[in-house]
Write a protein that binds this DNA or RNA. Structure first.
Length: 594
RNA sequence: GACCCCAUCGUCUAGCCAGGUCUAGGACAUCAGGUUUUCAUCCUGAAGACAGGGGUUCAAAUCCCCUUGGGGUCACCA
């Protein structure tokens, strides 16, 4: 874009602190940030907390935490973790009420806005009437016909009112959008919209216009859901004599099935899991399960530390426990409360779809990978370039390569990118990251493994970790008690243990003393012993011996490379587990034949 | 329903604005083969798209129109 005047680029991300940061919001923030940085400008974070009922400080903190985790730092905005501040504050709408009121008064004085006294109920009724008669609802401007004496009388008696903006004329409204081109909106599609709510707070439309002007915002990059609203903003800017910033509206991100990515996804998945679980249960069991669920202590802090409930959100400040009634109405689909969805999912051991930034964090995605992927979802640098970092974005990002069509979120591709990034790390980098992830979300891993063993496990897992979390899940047997290992009743396990002559069990019995006698318990010492054994007794087929060993120590056919696995577990655990596996031989044969 | 936006492999996209070099390129996923002590990797290969119809033009994935399909907005939410 040609910048003819030397205006300094200023972009802003203006989220509402009413919930966790959604990937869609994160992408908007990323694009605002990238554009500002690419043009030597400033990126501003402003908290749009004009909805008193839904805003919370905890959500705001979580939001900023997520932004910083992604590496999206703001030049101006709320102070947080060493950044923020600035000369155009306050950066919370709720602290700018006097500014809004000044402009509201101005508009009323100039006859460009007026007070209206209808109640929300009256308006709802009028709206549903209009809907029934199949025509579009527009506010009928009856408050405009009120004479001054009546208005004064209403004000004197303290009747609540809103302020509406008077639509100026019938001229089509032209919005220039950097990604969509010129969009015209017929004012007949709008009505005298509310700019000040009865509680004295401005609506989004009003606050955003005032704030963007007073904070010198030059470029407004936001989701396409605001495209229609932009006409209102333009009208307001004209009425107030404000400058008109550059607009760029981003298309939305969807689920692979084409549905909108929203918190409802979590509720849907949790309900599905619950109904599968409840299917065959008698009524009393359902009751018992519900009361079991309500017994969780929902205090923040504990929640996040508790690995069983690691998905529960930082932002949630739940004062009271959910009641069985809450759960029931959730299961009936009357509410989509994500807290309940996570409780159910954790209890049932199912994964919920990741839709919020923090979901991706607990799932073990790397922030730079998420940023890379998100940038690619709606923007393309061209030339088949796909992998890039923050610095590349700062260098190359611009509005002209923003994609106009909607995109579906492809989790498999994200996963592939994450694996690539993990494999590209140095062993030390991976170790440190994996350690931090375990300490945060799986503290038992850090507590139960000695540092030496933890280090070995990290090294053994790096190249097979699609996320920081998936190898933690598949490595549970490393921290289990020897007698807690359960042998999977699967075809693969049976085959490895029972088939052939000698069978896997026979090999285990034969190799056990060789391992028990090993004095130097390292990968390099174990390997030749097992290799030599398989040369002599299994036609050199290492798998014939390795698989039974793997099952004996882990309970399943999946683990890191076998010699590393044995080395990490230690001789005592390995021998114990082989002994126990052999002792279970008859029982295993009986039950697996049954 | 009204208005607005969008349309290239299953998915994300390059190519489109400045029409020919496009028998449409890449990535993820899929399939086949190979490597490997399991899983995951890794290597090689294959299959796979210009939504449909009209124009404009010597020439259209590229420009225009219509249809169809998808999405968004229509709050004292943002």
């Amino acid at each position: 874009m040609s910048q003819t005047n030397p205006t300094i680029v200023r972009t802003r991300f203006a989220p509402s602190p009413s919930g966790p940061l959604h990937v869609g919001g994160a992408r908007t923030a990323l694009f605002c940030w990238a554009y500002a940085k690419a043009h030597d400008g400033s990126f501003i974070l402003r908290i749009e907390d004009t909805d008193q009922k839904r805003s919370s400080d905890a959500a705001c903190q979580a939001l900023m935490h997520d932004l910083r985790w992604l590496g999206i730092d703001w030049d101006e905005g709320p102070e947080f973790d060493g950044i923020g501040g600035g000369d155009f504050g306050p950066y919370f709408c709720s602290k700018r009420l006097d500014i809004y009121h000044k402009y509201i008064d101005q508009l009323i004085d100039e006859g460009k806005a007026y007070r209206a006294f209808e109640t929300p109920q009256e308006l709802d009724a009028a709206r549903s009437d209009a809907k029934r008669q199949k025509h579009n609802y527009r506010y009928d401007r009856s408050a405009l016909k009120l004479d001054q004496a009546t208005i004064q009388a209403y004000l004197d008696e303290g009747r609540p009112y809103v302020v509406r903006f008077t639509l100026p004329n019938d001229e089509p409204i032209l919005v220039r959008d950097e990604v969509r081109g010129e969009v015209t909106v017929d004012p007949k599609e709008m009505d005298d919209f509310v700019i000040l709510k009865a509680d004295g707070y401005p609506t989004y439309h009003f606050a955003v216009v005032i704030d963007d002007e007073s904070m010198n915002i030059t470029h407004i990059i936001r989701g396409q859901e605001h495209l229609n609203n932009t006409a209102k903003h333009v009208l307001l800017q004209d009425a107030l004599g404000f400058r008109r910033p550059v607009f760029a509206h981003l298309s939305l991100i969807f689920n692979p099935d084409g549905s909108k990515m929203s918190k409802r996804e979590k509720a849907k998945a949790a309900r599905k899991a619950a109904s599968a679980f409840l299917q065959s249960k008698p009524t009393e069991d359902v009751e018992a399960w519900l009361s079991h669920l309500t017994s969780f202590d929902m205090k923040i802090g504990d929640l996040v530390r508790n690995s069983q409930q690691r998905h529960l959100h930082l932002y949630q400040e739940v004062e009271h426990l959910f009641s069985p009634t809450d759960f029931r109405s959730f299961l009936d689909g009357d509410t989509d409360e994500p807290g309940i969805a996570h409780l159910i999912a954790d209890d049932l051991g199912v994964d919920l779809p990741e839709i919020d930034v923090q979901d991706f964090r607990v799932s073990g995605f790397l922030p730079q990978v998420l940023v890379n992927y998100l940038a690619l979802l709606g923007w393309s640098p061209g030339n088949d370039v796909e992998k890039f970092d923050h610095a590349f974005l700062i260098e190359h990002f611009d509005l002209d390569r923003i994609i106009k069509s909607h995109a579906k979120f492809d989790r498999d591709k994200l996963l592939a990118f994450n694996l690539d990034a993990i494999q590209a790390m140095s062993p030390k980098q991976f170790h440190d990251l994996w350690y931090a992830h375990c300490r945060e979300y799986h503290p038992k891993f850090v507590e139960k493994l000695s540092p030496e063993r933890f280090d070995m496990l990290a090294a053994a897992n790096q190249s097979r970790s699609k996320t920081l979390d998936d190898t933690v899940k598949s490595s549970q047997f490393f921290i289990m008690a020897d007698d807690a290992i359960e042998y999977e009743q699967t075809k693969a396990v049976r085959k490895a243990l029972c088939n052939g002559d000698p069978s896997g069990y026979d090999h285990l019995a034969a190799i056990k003393p060789l391992l028990a006698d090993l004095t130097d318990w390292t990968k390099d010492a174990i390997e030749p012993v097992v290799d030599k054994y398989s040369q002599e007794h299994a036609n050199g087929k290492l798998g014939k011996v390795a698989q039974p060993l793997r099952i004996a120590v882990s309970g399943s056919t999946v683990s890191p490379a076998i010699f590393e696995t044995l080395a990490i577990l230690g001789r005592e655990a390995v021998v114990n587990r082989i002994t126990r596996c052999l002792a279970n031989r008859q029982q295993f044969l009986d039950t697996s034949n049954a």
